[in-house]
Amino acid sequence: MSIWLKNISKSFGSDLVLDDITQEIPQGSLTALLGPSGSGKSTLLRIIAGLEQADSGRVELNGRDVTSVAIRDRHIGFCFQDYAPFNQLNVFENIAYGLKVQKLPKAQIRREVDDLLALVRLEGFADRYPRQLSGGQRQRMALARALAVKPEVLLLDEPFAALDAQVGAEMREWVRSLQHQLGITTILVTHNQSEAMEMADQLIILNGGKVEQSGKPADVYEAPANPFVLSFLGPLTTLNGVSLRPHNIEFCEVGQGSKVQVVDVLHLGFEVRVTVTNQDNDRTWVQLTHDEARKKNLQVGETAAIRQRSNS
């Protein structure tokens, strides 16, 4: 199901949170709404779900105008940042909740919940209560609960923010493959650019209630439309007053680039960060691969030269 947002505006008091947003979210895609906090991304997601009403504009799901349709009739799966577990119900009852609302026969509910438990790898946890689960398990329960009612759209609000780094990385990969497997149109809200780049087919970059740029992650990264997108989407450094990505700088023979002095070399596994200063004491940092750094064998205090890579 494709989603069309048409001229959506929303204010909280005198605070304009969303300013005339028009955007298409293509069928079956995983789209990331990416932006700093306060950019309006969560509000936009809540408007799509019907948890919030836009002041003006329309939300269309597959050509059907749902702007004034109640939440419970929108057929949307929503995963909250805190997973919103039903703490008095066990895992089975949590997942079965939406099916019970639909008054399905008991045997069918049991069958479908068992399938979902297998899908989210929570077999054997059916009798547990949410507070007895880890963060990752609780999130998978929330996903299964949302998927149980076979929503046409899945909305994820900062789904990995509350998880520790390693579990978050595993969950990102797993949610990504689950989305591919199910082919369900999904919108992910995040402030984390690497999470968005890693997961999404399409990025929508929001700032101050406006769309700064949208498109495929690689395209947006390669051709940022404005300085905000450039600075938000990845690391940035300056060379002779020009902003550019630290991996787009290389070391060269002295005389072929700007003369600098090496002040720091950090080995971070595959990546090596070299910090240099020029004679005006302007700092630049350069991102090298481990191999490149080993060939150069840069030492702190050494004089070297850097230039923008020719392919960038």
């Binding site: 929503f78 909250f80 039903f86 939406g98 609302v101 949302a146 009612v149």
Partner: peptide
């Protein structure tokens, strides 16, 4: 926090 209530609403509950 009432997010559980919102979640129930998205699942179709009155």
């Amino acid at each position: 926090t009432f997010t559980a209530q919102s979640a129930a609403a998205t699942l179709g509950a009155s």
